[in-house]
């Protein structure tokens, strides 16, 4: 194995990327796991905000709808990097003020929690639009039938709306998940230690920029391709029992 790597001229790269201490492989994997934790948390928070936002946009009062329209428009027009900075400062300020009001001292906020909060609020705006479109795509007769049977609102959401909208929402949500994984890289700019920042630290202390950035790129690409395959299966499952889209009019 190592002879083969030597033969390909990759011996040095393998040494740098090895998992045991002189190599930096373990740092990259720790960074990757942090990135995935933040992405998963932000995606979940975004889904929650998105579901509430979609319901507010569809069934809320006039003021709720206008406020939600401002939220989704502004978040989608401002660069993520700027939003991350604003939300980070606002979040830490709020937490510190709350802690001071309760008589505590300044609070150290963990990077993962802060990352989930800022990316989750951003994801929420996009998820609102995706879920609103998916809910609107449900034939209205289905919800009316559920209501006619006397189902309470919560049960309708759980047993009719969510399962029926899944098929329409999965492609958009898959896209959002990929955006979440890639947006975690932006947290490197504000100094959260995740895959991209770990990579940069490894690269600048060994001067092997190409090796490390390529390795990190391969890790990100692996996550993207794997999630793509998983979401394709999820979509197939969500569409079960529905007529196939292929073969019909394009």
């Amino acid at each position: 194995m190592s002879d083969l790597l030597e033969l390909l001229g990759l011996g040095q790269a393998a040494e740098l990327l090895s998992l045991s201490p002189p190599g930096w492989g373990r740092n990259l994997l720790v960074g990757l796991s942090r990135s995935l934790q933040i992405a998963a948390g932000a995606f979940g928070l975004g889904l929650l905000i998105g579901l509430l936002g979609a319901y507010g946009k569809l069934h809320g009062g006039k003021i709720t709808r206008d406020l939600l329209a401002i939220y989704t428009t502004v978040i989608r027009a401002v660069p993520e990097l700027v939003l991350i900075l604003i939300l980070y400062y606002v979040g830490t300020d709020l937490v510190n003020k709350a802690s001071a009001a309760l008589g505590g001292g300044p609070v150290e906020i963990s990077g993962i929690a802060a990352g989930i909060w800022v990316l989750g609020v951003v994801q929420g705006a996009y998820a609102t639009e995706v879920l609103r479109g998916a809910i609107q795509a449900i034939p209205p007769g289905q919800v009316e039938a559920a209501r006619a049977f006397g189902m309470p609102g919560w049960t309708i959401l759980r047993r009719v709306t969510i399962p029926a909208m899944m098929a329409f929402a999965v492609p958009g949500l898959a896209n959002l998940w990929l955006i979440a994984t890639k947006d975690t890289a932006l947290l490197a700019v504000v100094g959260f230690s995740e895959l991209t920042l770990e990579t940069r630290q490894a690269a600048s202390s060994t001067r092997a920029y190409f090796t490390f950035f390529m390795a990190a790129g391969a890790l990100y690409l692996m996550v993207t391709l794997l999630s793509g395959a998983l979401f394709a299966r999820l979509e197939k499952w969500a569409r079960r029992g529905q007529p196939s889209l292929k073969g019909g009019a394009r």
């Binding site: 990929l178 932006l186 991209t196 920029y209 950035f213 390529m214 990190a216 790129g217 990100y220 391709l225």
Partner: peptide, 14 residues
């Protein structure tokens, strides 16, 4: 499939 920030850093530093 990869973050743009990583691509920028690969080009600039690499």
């Amino acid at each position: 499939g990869t973050p743009l920030l990583l691509q920028i850093w690969l080009l600039y530093y690499g």
